[in-house]
Design a protein around this nucleic acid. Structure first.
Length: 572
RNA sequence: CGGGGUGUGGCGCAGUCCGGUAGCGCACCUGCUUUGGGAGCAGGGGGUCGUCGGUUCAAAUCCGACCACCCCGACCA
């Protein structure tokens, strides 16, 4: 591969519209170009990295017994209507019509397609289990694409779906996928952590996310170093202690709190800790009005609320609705005296003997001495609070620590959600018809490349992990107009290529400084420099971009030394 | 969708307040010199100033509408 004949458009300056490091470097190093928000063209170097990750994914999936297939990107609305996701998936589903005005979607994921395939193809328990995967471009009409290819509208993903006779068989494949994903990320040379995730209401007992650790990662991870529990902060379980104040009241007492709406304002005004208050948040859950109570010092976790509700279809009331329901301005809602059809759900930490302060459902007033089950009835108790660093681990006495990561893989036990909705069944050994038990396993390929950069860069550019670098070796002839230098570089290029090494030869007629800067920017792990000085002394330089380590070798041993260093690194 | 911001040559930007017919750095092309960490000199090419409309003798500049993009938030099987 010759740089002079390749499309590797590097930038010296940082593009103005790229915020995070991986996005900036992918643009500057000539890996990608943006066509529109969240839509990218992969240029030769970028696509090579994508391909290398895809190859690793493919090898590990095959090794785990999965079979590669390829499904349609363009999918008819009917199957989405069948699963219920034509409406449930929401505006994130990219929709379009054909010339006959028939509705279609561009696939964001393929549960419907695969279920439709399998129900028409598999009949017997004897044919199970099956695990099918594909590596393909996916579409999601993200509300806000950002972070370059990290959260794009079109992206490369590996998705796999498994079909089983029972949960036990699913468990087995799920573990295999868990192991395969761990191997994939290890082989890519990335630091990662597996965390527990919640499937929401999509069913299934278990779900795990594979997080590449990065300080700029968009997901927060909470983990306990004592017992090893780790979870996405959005989902982390929590059992807050019931540290209620002494119960002294016999009846709630209204206090005037003019203009004090927020927890901070009210607690400051009354001279109380925020934890002495309960926040009342008003939601529409399906068709019902629900008041949700959490301690004043904490935030609600909406994912947990959705789980308690059993439906993801919920939203906070608009200001006008709040006024109508509570009879007071926003900021003064409370559980006492709401319309009778309003359900009240509360975090478990509020259970039991405890007096707290809530809104009075009257503008400019709060109630103190409010006690659950005496002054209002709680319909459901649950874990509703957003966990955070420093909280006590729900599994042991340890404390949560916070770190950040990029979600590159997510595995789910789906159970029978799709097979039941789409009538996909097999005959068991007793001749009875049963829905398939399913699992699904997603792995973000393009996102993994971005996360590799996010985890491996310095002030000069990318420092590719060997396994995902676009090429193995960059040869830099310092001056291509000098025949001796050129000759040595060309020969080395041939020798290494013949040995199966992927090589980029920087045969451009540029100043050495410019070539070195570009070399650092694109970050190829091994750089061989051929210059006048080195040739004269017969000491040619092999530099490791990651470690900065430099070896010098005579011309005659150069190719062998490069091969040896690659071999040694691969062995590590 | 709400809030904030930006659209001027491939990239980074100035010019807009105060209207007078587009400029700087980098990149690109030609020539000469130069060649181990983003060279020098000389010459050159490239922009209907996001789009549409309005005001004006005259609009990158003023007014209106729209579009795109970026950031924060909401959202994220």
């Amino acid at each position: 591969m010759r740089w002079s004949r390749s499309l590797i458009p590097t930038f010296r300056e940082v593009p103005a519209d790229a915020e995070i490091v991986s996005h900036q470097l992918m643009l500057r190093a000539g890996l990608v170009r943006k066509l529109a928000a969240g839509i990218f063209t992969y240029l030769p170097l970028g696509w090579r990295s994508i391909s290398r990750v895809a190859t690793i994914v493919r090898e590990e999936m095959n090794r785990a017994g999965a079979q590669e297939i390829n499904m349609p990107v363009l999918q008819p609305a009917e199957i989405w209507q069948e699963s219920g996701r034509w409406s449930d998936f929401g505006r994130e589903l990219m929709r379009l019509r054909d010339r006959h005005e028939r509705d279609f979607a561009l696939g964001p994921t393929h549960e419907e397609v695969i279920t439709s395939l399998v129900r028409n193809t598999l009949r017997s328990y004897r044919q199970l289990p099956q695990n099918l995967y594909q590596i393909q471009v996916k579409f999601r009409d993200e509300i806000r694409p950002r972070f370059g290819v990290m959260r794009a509208r079109e992206f490369v993903m590996k998705d796999a779906y498994s079909f089983h006779v029972d949960d036990e068989s699913l468990d087995h494949t799920y573990r295999d996928m868990h192991d395969a994903y761990s191997r994939i990320i290890e082989r890519c040379g990335l630091d990662f952590r597996v965390v527990e995730a919640d499937t929401g209401v999509i069913g299934g007992a278990e779900s795990h996310e594979f997080m590449v650790l990065a300080t700029n990662g968009e997901s927060e991870i909470l983990s306990c170093s004592t017992c090893g529990y780790a979870a996405n902060a959005e989902r982390a379980e929590l059992r807050l202690p019931q540290t209620g104040s002494e119960a002294t009241s016999t009846t709630p007492e209204e206090v005037s709190t003019p203009g004090k709406r927020t927890v901070e304002e009210v607690s400051g005004f009354l001279g109380l800790q925020p934890s002495a208050l309960a926040k009342t948040l008003l939601f529409k859950v399906g068709e019902r009005d629900v008041a949700v109570l959490v301690p004043g010092s904490r935030d609600l976790n909406e994912a947990k609320l959705a789980r308690l509700a059993g439906t993801p279809i919920l939203r906070m009331l608009e200001d006008a609705e709040v006024r109508k329901l509570s009879g007071a301005d926003v900021g003064f809602a409370g559980p006492v005296g709401l319309p009778p059809q309003t359900a009240i759900w509360a975090d478990r930490s509020l259970e039991g003997e405890r007096d707290f302060v809530t809104g009075a459902n009257r503008t400019d007033a709060h109630l103190r001495g409010v006690r659950p089950q005496r002054d209002f009835q709680v319909e459901r108790w649950g874990d509703l609070v957003l966990a955070r660093a420093g909280d006590t681990c729900p599994r042991c006495d340890g404390r949560f620590e916070s770190s950040r990561g990029i979600e590159v893989g997510h595995i789910f036990k789906l159970g029978t959600k799709y097979s039941e909705k789409m009538s996909a069944a097999f005959l068991d050994d007793g001749g009875r018809e049963r829905p398939y038990v399913m699992g699904c396993y997603g792995f973000g390929v393009s996102r993994t490349v971005a996360s590799a950069i996010e985890q491996n860069y310095d002030d000069d550019g990318i420092r590719w992990p060997r396994a995902v670098a676009p090429v193995d070796v960059l040869i830099v002839p310092v001056n291509v107009t000098a025949p001796a230098i050129r000759e040595v570089a060309e020969t080395l290029h041939e020798e290494l290529s013949a040995a199966g090494v992927e090589v980029l030869l920087d045969d451009r007629d540029l100043r050495p400084g410019a070539k070195f800067k570009d070399a650092d920017l694109i970050g190829i792990p091994t750089r061989v420099t051929i210059g006048e000085r080195g040739l004269r002394e017969d000491k040619l330089e092999i530099r490791n971009r990651r470690t900065g380590e430099v070896q010098v070798h005579p011309r005659s041993e150069l190719a062998g030394a490069v091969l040896e260093s690659l071999r040694r690194e691969n062995a590590d």
